[in-house]
Amino acid sequence: MPAEDRRKERLDRGIKARTEGLYAISSWREITYLLAPRAALVLGLLIAPAVVPGLYWQRVLGLAGVYALLAISFDFLAERVGLVCIGGAFMIGVGGYISGVLNYYFHLPLALTIPVGTFGGALICTLLWLPCLPLRGIYFAVVTFMFPFLAGSIILAGGLFRGTEGLSPIAGFPNIWVGVYLIIVLVLFAVFALRRLCGEDIGLVFAGIKDNDQAVLASAINITRVKVYALFIATVIGCFAGTFVAHFSGFVGLSLFAIDFTIMPIAACVMGGPGTIAGPAVGAFMLSPLSELLRGFGQLRVVLYCLVLVGFILYKPEGLLNWATRRYHQFEHWVKL
């Protein structure tokens, strides 16, 4: 058939329609259909640290978990609340420095530094970004993008926290398993909790702000306050990733404000499927091992993943997870016009 005489038709699978309502629990087939993708994600991530060869790859997984958390946080803010916050490195830096300083100077244990770093850091990030919340779109993005540079240059200029040398050693996790499983469990928790949150009433208000903030204002809702809630949730996730990096690498320094922590999560989000929350996490767990594999190629690695990123945005803007979801729920065939 010549191309212009045909088109692709997509139809929902019968089982998809059945599992939307109460039918979902009518048989094991339906339940399996619903649970299989979720179970695959959970089991895959839980098994991964045990099957990868050696310590090096376990560390890579831990770092992938950090990128996954940042990607989730970015995706939640950008696609579910409409705040394009590209200051991932700032959250990492603030979280990391807080727990690093507490551990290095005051010798506090991990059980204390991590929660303080996470929630204290989130509080600081939220308060610092609070004045920027009325800004829209690219302006909010540019301001948040500048924050890691500002923080980095202040630390550099003032020679704070031993300046360029950084703080080392920072107490690490008792062993690698604790670290890796801590972050994997938290990634899974964040994915499911945020997806749930977005379906709740406040999640609808978030979506409303993204779609049309004026209408939300006219609905007697203080949008700045609601955005603060969302920002706090996202920065808690990001700052936890920061404290994790500090303890996982045993070092706190200017590298925490590195642009990698901003770029990689965005790349993971674009690749995994913007707006799905699970997609960015999956994307991060695919992209960061991939970039480790390419480490031998030096700078070619960066070039390659930039090209991957551009390719995805141009040719598959929906991302992997959205594509996979469609294939899972629908079948396609060619029909004659």
Partner: peptide, 24 residues
């Protein structure tokens, strides 16, 4: 609003959850 302001990504009845969630 004269130029209507719906929430394109929400189902119609869900878009009323927004005002119903307001303190008032």
């Amino acid at each position: 609003f004269q130029v209507v302001r719906p929430y394109p990504s929400l189902k119609t009845y869900k878009s009323l959850i927004v005002p119903l969630w307001s303190p008032r």
